[in-house]
Nucleic acid binder design. Structure first.
Lengths: 352, 352
DNA sequence: GTCGGTTCTGCAAAGGATTGCAAGATTCCG
DNA sequence: CGGAATCTTGCAATCCTTTGCAGAACCGAC
C-alpha cells in the first residue's frame, strides 16, 4: 500500500542526496563511484525497494533482458526437458524467458519468430520445422541459435544423432538382429534426417538390413500406427524416431500380444522420463536435453556479448553434444528364425 | 538489410507528411483521425514495416503487453496442457507470455512472482504450493489470478474437484467396491485438499470405507511407492491424486503381477494424454485443462480492463469448471471376497 | 604555491511512443 | 454571411533510465 507506486531512480537520488546519474552508476558500474556515496545510494535503494524500470532501461540500451524460446510442442516431454534447461540457464543469467509453442506448425514458427524478435535480445529456436530458406530470411539481425538443426552460417547446438544410431545398430547387431526397421519422424525434421543417415551408414557397416517405414507424426499415435507395419516387415527390431513413438509401438505390440523383446526388440530415442517407467523399460538413445538447453543459452549470451565481432567474420559457433545408448529391457537377442512370427500370428497358424 | 534498424513513429510521420501524434492516433484510435490521412499513415506504416516499440509504449502507458504464467512443473503433462490453453488465449489477445517453472518449490514461487510482477500486466499462478499468507502479501498491486486454488478476496479459476471425486466414488461403489484407497498428493496442494474432502463426503454418502495413504510426490515414483501400500490396505480400488501417480501404481502392480482391474481397480485424475494410451487404458476424472487456462486469461484480461473498478469493491471474480469421469479399462467390478488377495499373495497361501 | 593528473559527480540529451491542450480548418445553423 | 460547434491536427510535455561531456574536488609533485 505505502509503495503502491514503484520508486524511481529519482526517489533514490533525492533520498541519498545525489544525482540520478550517480545512482545509476552506483548500481551498474560500482567502481566508478566513491565507496562512501555508493553505500549511501545502495542503502537508499534497498530502503525504497527500488528496482530499475526495465522498459526505460530497454528504451535507451536497446536490450530487453529477455530471451525467447520456440518449440514445436510443449507437451512433448523431450521439449519440456529442453525448456527446463533453457529456463535454468536464462534465470541464472538474470534473463526472463518468453516461451512459444508452435503446435508443430511450420508457419507459426516464422510468425512467432518475427513477433518475438522485437521483444527479446536473442532467441533459441528448437527443432525448427520450417524449410531453411524461410528461416534464414527472418531474424537475421537478431541473435538466434538453432537447436537440433544446422544451417550454414548460423549458430547452432545439435546432438550427434548419427553416433547415437550407430550405437543403437551395433547393439542390435551384437544381439544377432539382421533386419531392423526404422519408424521415421516428420519429413521436415532435421534430426530425423540425421538419424536416417546415421542409420544407413551403420547398417551398411554392420551388414544389417534396414527397412524404412514411412513418415509418422512424432506422437504416440504415430507409433501405434507403425507397429503393424514393423511387424509385417519381417524385422526383428524396430528403432523409433523418438521415445513417444516407441511407446506407441510398445502399446500396440502389447495389444496384439507380441512379446517384447522376445519376438521383437524396440528401441527409442531421447530418453524421456517415461521410458524408464514402462513395462518393460525402454532401451533408448539418450540425449542430453537439459544440457542442450543450457548450451544454447550460453551460446546466445556469448553472441550477445560479442556483438559486432561475429559480424566481422568470426567463426560461427557450433556445439555438438554426445548421445548415449541406454540399454534397458526392450531389446534382447534376436529370435531364432522359426519363432519370428510366433507371437503375432500364433492363433492363425504358423506358416503365413 | 535495408531496414536493419527498425522504423520509428517519426519515420512514418515524415513519410506520411503528418506529425507523430497523428500517426500514433491513426494506429490506436482510428476514429479520431480523418479517413484520408489515416489511409496515408497506414500505407506509410505498412511500407516501412513499422512496429511500435513496446518498451517506449510501456514506458508511458505503464503496461507491458505481457502476461506471466507460473507452474510447478512444466514436464507434468497436466501443466503443459494448461500452458497451451493460456498460451493460445494470450496470443489471440495479442499478449506475449512469460512462463516460469518452479520445480515444485514453494519458495521459488514467491520469488518468481516478485520478479515477474514488474514485467507483466498480469499473472496466472497455477496450482501454487506456497501457503496462503505468503501468497497474499506479494503481488497485491498487480493482477493475479489463481488457478487450482482459492484464496479469499483473490480472483481464481478452479475445478469442481469434490464433484469429480463424487463421480469416481459412485462409479466404484456401483461396481461393488466397499473399500477404496486414496493415494494423496502434496500436502500443500489445494487440489489435494479438495479431493480428500470430496472423497470423504462421497464415501460417507455411499457407505464405503476410505483408506488414506500418506502424502506422495505427484510423480510416477509416488505411485510406484504407493502401490504396495494400497495392495496391503485391503482396498479393492485405488484412486490416485493424479494420472501420473496412477500410472506409477499401474506400473508397480503390473510388476507384481496383480491383474487390473480384476483384482484391484485404479482410477486417476486429470486425464492427461498418456492415460488413454496405457494398457489397460486408465479410468480417470477428466479436467478441462486448456479451458481452464483460457478462462484464467480471460479473467485476467477483464480484470485489466476494469482496472480501478475492482478496487472499488466489485465482487471478486471466480469461475469453477466442471469435471467429468471418463470410464476406461482400469476399473471393473469388485472381486469376490475370497479372491481379494489372490494375485498379490498367491504364492504365499491365501489366509494371511 | 601552482600545475598536471585522478577521481568523483552532475548536467542534460537521448531513446520512442502517448496524450492533454490548443490552434487551425471545416461545417452548420440561423 | 457571421458565429458557434465540431473535426482534425500539431506542439510539447512526460514516462524512467543511461551516458557523453564537463566541471569540481582532491592528490602528489615540482
Amino acid at each position: 500500500m505505502g509503495d503502491a507506486v514503484a520508486a524511481t531512480i529519482r526517489d533514490v537520488a533525492t533520498a541519498a542526496g545525489v544525482s540520478q546519474s550517480t545512482v545509476s552508476r552506483a548500481l551498474s558500474i560500482p567502481e566508478l563511484v566513491n565507496p562512501a556515496t555508493r553505500a549511501r545510494v545502495l542503502a537508499a535503494a534497498r530502503q525504497l525497494g527500488y528496482q530499475p524500470n526495465r522498459a526505460a532501461r530497454g528504451l535507451i540500451t536497446g536490450r530487453t533482458g529477455n530471451l525467447g524460446l520456440i518449440v514445436p510442442d510443449l507437451s512433448n516431454p523431450f521439449f519440456s526437458s529442453v525448456v527446463k534447461g533453457v529456463q535454468a540457464a536464462a534465470r541464472t543469467s538474470d534473463y526472463s524467458l518468453f516461451i512459444a509453442d508452435t503446435d508443430e506448425e511450420a508457419s507459426a514458427e516464422v510468425e512467432l519468430l518475427r513477433a518475438l524478435t522485437k521483444q527479446v535480445d536473442g532467441i533459441v529456436l528448437c527443432s525448427p520445422r520450417s524449410p531453411d530458406t524461410e528461416l534464414v530470411e527472418v531474424g537475421l539481425d537478431d541473435a538466434v541459435v538453432l537447436m537440433n538443426r544446422r544451417i550454414d552460417g548460423r549458430p547452432s547446438v545439435t546432438v550427434d544423432n548419427a553416433d547415437g544410431m550407430r550405437q543403437a545398430v551395433e547393439h542390435l547387431a551384437a544381439l544377432g538382429h539382421e533386419r531392423i526397421a526404422y519408424v521415421a519422424g516428420p519429413r521436415t525434421s532435421w534430426s530425423n534426417g540425421q538419424r536416417e543417415q546415421g542409420l544407413h551408414q551403420s547398417a551398411d557397416a554392420t551388414g544389417t538390413d534396414l527397412v524404412h517405414l514411412g513418415h509418422f507424426p512424432p506422437q504416440f499415435e504415430g507409433g501405434v500406427a507403425a507397429a503393424d507395419l514393423a511387424l509385417a516387415s519381417g524385422a526383428t527390431a524396430v528403432i523409433a524416431y523418438n521415445d513417444v513413438v516407441a511407446l506407441g509401438l510398445l502399446s500396440r505390440l502389447g495389444m496384439r500380444g507380441v512379446p517384447v523383446p522376445d519376438q521383437i526388440s524396440v528401441l527409442g530415442c531421447d530418453d524421456i522420463g517415461m521410458s524408464a517407467m514402462t513395462h518393460p523399460a525402454l532401451t533408448t538413445v539418450s540425449i542430453p536435453k537439459r544440457e542442450g538447453g543450457r548450451a544454447a543459452v550460453a551460446m546466445l549470451l556469448s553472441l550477445l556479448r560479442d556483438g559486432g565481432a561475429a559480424a566481422a567474420g568470426a567463426s560461427v559457433p557450433h556445439r555438438e553434444l554426445p548421445t548415449q545408448l541406454i540399454v534397458r529391457a526392450t531389446t534382447g537377442v534376436a529370435p531364432a528364425p522359426d519363432r519370428r512370427t510366433a507371437g503375432g500370428h500364433s492363433t492363425k497358424g504358423s506358416t503365413r
